[in-house]
Every structure is written in structure tokens, then in C-alpha cells.
């Protein structure tokens, strides 16, 4: 509990920040400032904090999340234990099947491995916003600028393929001479993000990025136009990384321009 002078100090400083002190309170604050130099310092600091805060936001959304979110989060634990039980009794399961369980409740739009018999799932698979963004966008950057594709924070996730949020480098093969393609994947709870940096593809020609799944389905992750400049693309597909076996870049005729085979993800 603050002492009386501390509480009065707080009362005066907060009033001064918003300019709501009475004449008597102003005089009192001046007296306090003269006696205690930390008052002036704190008044200046907190005024600056108030200014930055009000300059950053104009309102605050105080609504609660939907009730369904709790169930989705608690399913993480349920499914985790289900995974452990499944894994402990499925030692002989082939690698190619070992990740399909977390995909088995996928929406039919993914056209994927719904036939898996291992039912452990994390419920969130995709969101409408993802589908809205799914056609992908590309940024053509000038010679001097390349967007960062690496995690911006030192503690960004790392780990084997399939680690949520971690950037997984992939290697394309088969690209025509003069074409350079650097690719990465990011596994998300809602699907798989493909990051591409491309040079050398025919300018203005359309190309599709396609993810091939364990069951052989080809999922369109977006399209882009070739450019004389470096292309930096980020594309999303509503399919879990565990279910993706390769990434292809196809031309307008459907011919594969380059392909990256992926390791099994966990």
C-alpha cells in the first residue's frame, strides 16, 4: 500500500498528464516538484507513455473470444495423448503414414488423406481468412531489396520438418537453365505456407504453385507471373505440412517447371 504522500503524488501526476488539475492542485504539484526532482522526471516519462499510447491506438477491442475457442484449445491436450497412445501401438507403421493421423479430420476441400485410420487430431485446420488469402500474392522486389524470409526474432521456432512456425528450407530440381528458385515451407496449424524467391522465369507468363499430398492429390497454392526482376512470393494452402510430399511449380500448360521433394514431417 502506498503511503499518503505517494498516493497524493500519483493523484497529482495523473491529473497533470491530462491537464485536469485545479489551481490549488497545480500549486501543490509545483511545490512537490520543487521538493522532489523525481516528480518532474516521472511526469515527463508518463506523459510520453500516454502520448505514445494514444498515438498508437484510438480504441480497444475488449470483447472476449468465442466460446468454441476453449474447446479447440483443450483438444490440443486430448489429441496429444491420443497421439501418444497411437504411437505406442503403431511401431511398425510406415514413415509415409506416420503423420497422416494429424490430418485425418481435414476438410474435404483439401482433397487429402482423409482415409487415415489414426484419428488423433488438432481441430483447427483452416479458417475462412486463409481461404481468402489462399490464392497468394507475390512481391517483385528491385535489385537492391529482398524481403526477409528468416524469423525476425531470436526465439523463432526451429526444428525438424513439420515444426510449427519453423522455416524449412526445400530444394527445387529440374528448373530450366537461367532459372533460380529458393524455397522454404512453414508449417502452421491452419496449413502450409510456401515461401519462394525466384528469378529467371519468363516475364508475364503465369505459373502455379502446387502442393502434392500423400494421397497424390494436387492442391493449388496460388499463382504468379514471371518477372524480369526477383520475385518474392508467399503462398498458403489448406493442407497440413505432414500431408505434403512435394512442391511443384507448373507453367500454364500444367507442365512441371521445377519440383521439390519433401522429407516426411512430424
Amino acid at each position: 500500500m502506498p503511503d499518503a504522500s505517494g498516493a497524493r503524488r500519483a493523484f497529482l501526476i495523473s491529473g497533470a498528464i491530462t491537464g485536469e488539475l485545479t489551481t490549488a492542485e497545480l500549486a501543490e504539484l509545483d511545490t512537490l516538484r520543487a521538493a522532489d526532482p523525481t516528480v518532474e522526471k516521472e511526469l515527463r516519462e508518463l506523459t510520453d507513455v500516454a502520448r505514445v499510447t494514444s498515438a498508437t491506438l484510438s480504441d480497444w477491442d475488449a470483447t472476449a473470444p468465442s466460446k468454441s475457442l476453449r474447446g479447440r484449445v483443450l483438444a490440443i491436450e486430448r489429441d496429444s495423448y491420443s497421439d501418444l497412445r497411437t504411437d505406442s501401438t503403431s511401431d511398425a507403421r510406415a514413415d509415409s503414414d506416420s503423420h497422416s493421423d494429424s490430418y485425418s479430420d481435414s476438410d474435404t476441400t483439401a482433397g487429402s488423406t482423409a482415409g487415415s485410420t489414426n484419428a488423433a487430431v488438432v481441430p483447427l485446420r483452416r479458417r475462412p481468412w486463409l481461404l481468402a488469402l489462399g490464392a497468394a500474392a507475390c512481391i517483385v522486389v528491385g535489385a537492391g531489396g529482398t524481403l526477409l524470409l528468416q524469423p525476425s526474432t531470436p526465439s523463432a521456432p526451429t526444428g525438424p520438418p513439420g515444426t510449427l512456425g519453423a522455416i524449412e528450407q526445400i530444394a527445387f530440381t529440374g528448373e530450366p537453365s537461367g532459372v533460380s528458385i529458393d524455397g522454404s515451407l512453414v508449417a502452421h496449424t491452419w496449413g502450409t505456407e510456401t515461401l519462394l524467391t525466384i528469378t529467371g522465369l519468363t516475364e508475364a507468363d503465369p505459373y502455379d504453385v502446387v502442393l502434392v499430398t500423400l494421397d497424390g492429390a494436387s492442391l493449388d497454392s496460388g499463382s504468379f507471373l514471371g518477372s524480369a526482376k526477383e520475385i518474392d512470393c508467399a503462398m498458403n494452402a489448406a493442407v497440413m505440412r505432414e500431408a505434403v510430399t512435394s512442391v511443384q511449380i507448373q507453367d500454364a500448360s500444367g507442365a512441371v517447371v521445377a519440383s521439390a521433394e519433401l522429407p516426411a514431417a512430424s
Partner: peptide, 22 residues
């Protein structure tokens, strides 16, 4: 939700947060 101004994205972020924490 105040960072993204999108409730659906925000709920996904919360779920992802607890998934990573778990």
C-alpha cells in the same frame, strides 16, 4: 485482436499460442 483487428485471426493466434506452449 487489437494487434490484428481480426477476430478469426486473433483466435487462431491464441490457439496457436497454446499449441506451441503445450
Amino acid at each position: 485482436v487489437n494487434a490484428l483487428r481480426d477476430r478469426t485471426l486473433a483466435e487462431d493466434c491464441v490457439q496457436e499460442t497454446f499449441l506451441r506452449a503445450w
